[in-house]
């Protein structure tokens, strides 16, 4: 469009940027005839897909390694076999860590969602913008500061001579030594799951129809009853979505058991790393990884399906 100005009188100096734009325009025009135009979006997506392909092929190598026998002494890969899988499934340590991971993931995920429902209600309903902003900042603190700062904080809080000890001494209770226990791991895990649950729940909470609650109130329902029978059913799908995500996150949690559990209460993620690096049996670590992916996919899928089930309600 700028070329119309150029045609009149002395040619004005065209800024360099416009030459670039003109070049791009002619490039585009020459491409149109050659059917590149239609494929252009795909051409922009393919590099990103190829990049993710690096991870996908890594998972492929991992699976490949898990499906071959391995000589731990010589460090050599042998023939195709399911031996590593049967070896770890019969491994006492694996069984203990598997049960611990699944039960802890289930408990922490449920607690996180139960906390997140009232939290997101308060956040979404707050009339004051600063309050919404403050709660939003708070949600992202554990994510943006990262695993290390987060767990370091718990070590400082729960550790000897920390605030917990101080508080207990004030009340006159013997301070418990929580580091290295499931309590510490659970606290740390809930801290990361809770924000994830809030982020997933918020859109559904914002879609809640306030008219329904008013109607329930007019009909004489107490707020607790309105919450259970009017608000919760509307949040069912989102709550199960949050539960699935939290469960998947907790199943793969590495940092909390590693740092807060101090290797005393390992999850599958820690078991995997120990087999890979400390014990020097990569194929067993790889097999654990494949099992973990399978478990997470199945479990999260099952939770999502459960969320879609319509509960037949008794007439009130």
């Amino acid at each position: 469009m700028h070329t119309s100005q150029v045609a009149i009188g002395r040619p004005p100096r065209v800024p360099f940027g416009w030459h670039v734009v003109d070049g791009l325009i002619s490039l585009r025009r020459s491409a149109v005839g050659r059917n590149v135009g239609k494929a252009a979006p795909l051409l922009l997506i393919v590099p990103a897909l190829a990049l993710v392909g690096v991870l996908a092929s890594g998972i492929g190598f991992l699976t490949w390694a898990s499906l071959h026998s391995y000589d731990t002494f010589l460090g050599l890969q042998g023939e195709f076999s399911f031996g590593e899988y049967s070896a770890i499934i019969h491994d006492r340590q694996f069984q203990t860590d598997l049960v611990r991971t699944i039960s802890m993931a289930s408990i922490t995920a449920v607690i996180a969602v139960l906390l997140a429902i009232p939290f997101s209600l308060v956040m979404a309903r707050s009339r004051r913008r600063w309050m919404r902003l403050a709660l939003m900042v708070v949600i992202f603190v554990p994510y943006l500061t990262g695993d290390i700062t987060r767990t370091f904080g718990w070590l400082a809080v729960l550790g000897p001579r920390g605030p917990l000890t101080w508080l207990c001494e004030r009340i006159g209770v013997t301070p418990p030594d929580l580091i290295g226990t499931l309590w510490a791991i659970g606290l740390g895990t809930v801290q990361v799951l809770f924000p994830a649950a809030v982020v997933i729940l918020l859109p559904a909470v914002l879609r809640l129809d306030p008219e329904l609650e008013h109607a329930a109130g007019t009909l004489g329902a107490r707020p607790s009853r309105t919450f259970l029978h009017v608000i919760l059913p509307q949040l069912q799908i989102a709550a199960f979505g949050a539960l699935a995500a939290c469960w998947a996150l907790a199943m793969g949690d590495f940092a909390d058991p590693q740092i807060l559990g101090q290797g005393l209460k390992d999850y599958l993620a820690n078991f995997l790393q120990n087999r890979y690096l400390a014990i020097g049996n990569p194929p067993q670590g790889a097999a654990t990884g494949v099992i973990l992916i399978g478990l997470v996919t199945l479990g999260a899928g099952l939770i999502l399906v459960l969320g879609r089930v319509r509960v037949r309600r008794r007439p009130l």
Binding site: V54, L55, S57, G58, F61, F254, G289
Partner: peptide, 17 residues
């Protein structure tokens, strides 16, 4: 994919590749 795979599994997948 990197988000849906447990992070420790991604880490060791990168380790392998």
């Amino acid at each position: 994919l990197g988000l849906s795979t447990p992070i420790i599994v991604s880490a060791f997948s990168f380790f392998e590749i």
